[in-house]
Amino acid sequence: MLTIIQAAGWPIWPLILCSIVALALVIERFVSLRTIKIAPPRLLDEVLTVSRNSLPSPDVVGKLAKSSVLGQVLASGVQAVMTEPRIGEPALRTVFESTGRAAVHRLERYLNTLGTIAAAAPLLGLLGTVIGMIEIFGSQSPTGGNPEQLAHGISIALYNTAFGLIIAIPALMFYRYFRGRVDEYAIEFEQAAERLVPHLLRFSLLRTQPNATVKAPE
């Protein structure tokens, strides 16, 4: 490997840096975007069960917000009803939407960097190719060529092109994969909020209409 790096010349070092950063981002995103940390499968059902007859206590809501990203979104709606008993449906939906957008933004962290590496790596490889071609042309002279300089120029051109593609292809694949995961989570947040909105509005209606009765959700 050291021999290949030496043969590829100095243009290979930016590509090596990109490969290290891309690998670190892929590992970090795999760890951070796990389902158990973002949207546990049974979390919404547990929230509906706990709040079937009354709103949960602030301690329970705080634990819900710390449990996962979906928990933060659901807890924001519960806290909104607890803070403003007469809250209406539009205002409650606005709370869910703003919290959901912020959550999705956090899930997209580092994805732009990974996408930039996927786009820039081939260009860096092309830069190495151009530098290698300059070396090749520089090895030629009217009195004869320099075989050593010619071979070095070919090595720079080929190795940098190959390294650029080797880095760009996996980076692009992982970028698309993580982008799809974030989109799936965003849909889950939206669907969970849609189910929780009418459930929470029962308590708002109950407080604004003292004679109303609370019906258990089907």
Rank of each mutant, 00 (worst) to 15 (best):
L196G: 00
K66H: 14
P85H: 11
S19R: 11
V31T: 07
I166L: 14
L2I: 13
L55Q: 12
I131L: 14
V60A: 13
F163T: 07
L114V: 08
T161G: 05
E184W: 06
A7W: 02
V182F: 03
M133G: 05
L48Y: 02
P170V: 09
S32F: 13
R195Y: 04
R181K: 14
T94H: 12
N53G: 15
P217Y: 07
Q72Y: 01
V61I: 15
A120C: 04
L74P: 03
A151E: 07
L200K: 02
T213W: 04
L64K: 02
L33P: 05
S57P: 08
L150W: 15
T49K: 14
P90A: 10
L111C: 14
P85Q: 08
E135T: 05
V47C: 03
A8P: 03
H199N: 07
A22G: 12
P58A: 10
A8N: 04
R109P: 04
A212V: 02
I117Y: 11
I167Y: 09
A157I: 04
E194L: 13
I167C: 09
A171G: 11
S57I: 10
S19N: 10
E184C: 06
V81W: 01
E190D: 12
L15V: 12
G88N: 05
M1V: 10
L64M: 12
L15W: 05
P147Y: 15
H199W: 06
A7K: 09
E194C: 06
L55I: 12
G145K: 06
